[in-house]
Amino acid sequence: MTDPIPVPVGILRLPRGPDSSGSRGFSDHSRDPQNSRDPQNSRDSGALQSARAALRERFLRLLSSARGRPARFSLWNGILLHADFGAADVQTGAFQVDSLQTPLGIQGSALLRSGDVLEFSFPLE
Rank of each mutant, 00 (worst) to 15 (best):
V90E: 15
F85S: 00
G108F: 05
Q91I: 05
L48R: 15
F122T: 08
E125H: 15
S21C: 01
L12H: 10
S21I: 04
E57L: 08
R24V: 07
S109V: 05
L104Q: 14
G93N: 06
T102R: 11
D44E: 14
N41I: 01
P70N: 08
L118P: 02
Q101F: 05
F59E: 12
S74A: 08
R13Q: 12
I106K: 15
D98W: 05
L100D: 03
P15Y: 04
S30A: 06
N77L: 04
G10S: 14
I5M: 10
S121H: 06
V117R: 03
L55E: 12
D32R: 06
F120M: 01
V97Q: 01
G22P: 01
N77S: 09
G25R: 02
D84R: 12
N35H: 15
I106Y: 03
R113K: 09
L118N: 13
D116L: 11
I5L: 12
L62N: 00
D3F: 13
F120G: 00
P6S: 10
D44I: 13
L80I: 13
R43G: 09
A54S: 10
D44Y: 15
D19Y: 02
D89P: 03
L118A: 14
D89Q: 09
S99A: 13
H29C: 08
G22Q: 04
E57M: 09
R56K: 10
R56H: 11
P18E: 08
R69L: 15
I11R: 15
D38F: 04
T102D: 11
P123Y: 04
V7I: 08
A83V: 00
S50R: 15
